[in-house]
Design a protein around this nucleic acid. Structure first.
Lengths: 161, 161
DNA sequence: TCTATTAGCACTAAATTAGTGCTATTTGAT
DNA sequence: ATCAAATAGCACTAATTTAGTGCTAATAGA
């Protein structure tokens, strides 16, 4: 439940590696051997990232990948979106109600029929936002300090708990 | 990817309903018919919640469930944990390294072998924290205002974006 | 020409999830 | 007493999703 797929995990692993070796061209094989991951799957993830424009690829021997953008502008959200596809917002709004057999919003009582209403939706949006505001540079940083939003959130949390 | 199971969704739906009808005893059938959900599955979720002590059950005709605790003290995190089980932290620490064949932390170089390091771990922890700090009372509130932490987070986000 | 790489699918196998079947127990109503 | 309707607790099947591989083509350095 609520976990990333291996593809996304491998993709992030590879990207962090590429961030640590910014500028270098690194092959899928090198990455997979270094972290002992199934190299074909790492390759699939890298292909997805390349298609999305986050990576640049070079073919042939000595080929491989390198970041197409700065690690500080690439977010975890973009990476996951490129590999797993868009969010997965809970089906609990007009669409879902139509699927349930309601012809229009007019003849259904959202408040009483959809108890999750927007909150669950918003929770998942917040999760997504968290992904979108975390950059690869931050993810690659060994101790994860220097992340303003996260630190503020944490302070707020402990202050209210 | 990164979505709740139906059981968790139905469980939250049922709980929001029970929150709206606090004090009443409501059967799984009533809830499932009201929201047009598979009633057996709703029942399974409710059983899980009952086993976890979040609900009180009454048998026999006119039986059903009611909140065992106040909606303001029950969190989304507790609900999900009761239904789906604990988190699902990424396997990217000592355990995983041992699984990969390293005998001890001493002979492996975490920094170079585990590029996700703690950050991904922390991202998922933060998601979980978000679940843990959202109460059912908040989830049941129609417009989701009055949620201090979330509002602060949002302000911070927009201020920095 | 050979070899090592990426590109792009399609496909199989494993794992997870959704939903149901079945039986037992409880309890109010008749 | 009996019946009906509810929860309790599994086990089980079917559907869906995910992991991983097979295969072929294109690219490019040696």
């Amino acid at each position: 439940m609520l976990k990333l797929t291996k593809r996304a995990e491998y993709g992030l692993t590879a990207l962090v590696h590429l961030t640590d070796h910014a500028g270098d061209v690194v092959s899928a094989r090198e990455i997979s051997e270094h972290y002992r991951l199934p190299h074909r799957l790492v390759g699939e993830a890298l292909k997805d990232l390349c298609r999305a424009g986050h990576l640049q690829s070079l073919r042939g021997p000595a080929g491989g990948y390198r970041l197409a953008r700065s690690a500080s502008s690439l977010t975890v959200g973009e990476v996951i979106a490129a590999i797993e596809g868009a969010p997965a917002l809970p089906e609990c709004d007009a669409m879902a109600l139509v699927d349930l057999g309601f012809d229009s919003l007019a003849d259904c009582d959202v408040e009483s029929r959809c108890p999750i209403r927007s909150p669950l939706h918003r929770i998942q949006e917040d999760i997504w936002r968290q992904f979108e505001r975390t950059t690869l540079e931050e993810l690659a940083a060994p101790d994860f300090s220097l992340i303003p939003n996260r630190n503020v959130a944490k302070t707020t949390l402990s202050a209210s708990a």
